[in-house]
Amino acid sequence: MKGLISMYYNEKRKAITAKYVKTHLDDIKIRVPKGQREKLKAIASEMGMSMNQMFIKAVEEYIEKNYKPEAESETD
Rank of each mutant, 00 (worst) to 15 (best):
L4A: 06
E11K: 12
S73L: 08
E72N: 11
Y9D: 09
A44M: 07
I43A: 01
R31G: 14
D26I: 14
A44F: 02
Q36R: 11
I30P: 01
K12T: 05
I30N: 00
E70F: 13
R13F: 12
F55S: 00
K39Q: 14
L25C: 07
A15E: 07
I5L: 11
I16C: 04
K2W: 04
I63P: 00
K19A: 07
E11F: 03
V21F: 07
N10V: 03
E60V: 03
E60H: 09
N66C: 01
S50F: 04
K34P: 06
I28V: 09
L40G: 01
V21Y: 04
I5N: 00
G35Q: 02
G35E: 06
T23S: 14
E61K: 04
G35N: 05
P69C: 08
K2D: 09
A44G: 03
Y67V: 04
I63G: 01
D26Y: 13
D76G: 05
M1R: 12
E38A: 13
Y67H: 14
L40E: 02
N52T: 11
K41Q: 06
I56C: 11
S6I: 07
E61Y: 04
K34R: 15
M7G: 01
I30E: 04
M54K: 03
E74P: 02
G48H: 00
M1N: 12
E46Y: 09
E70T: 06
L25W: 14
D26S: 10
M47G: 01
R31W: 13
I28M: 10
K65I: 07
E38T: 03
P33Y: 12
T75P: 02
M51I: 15
P69I: 13
R13G: 01
I63S: 01
A71L: 11
G35K: 05
E11C: 01
Y67P: 00
K12R: 14
K41T: 03
D26K: 09
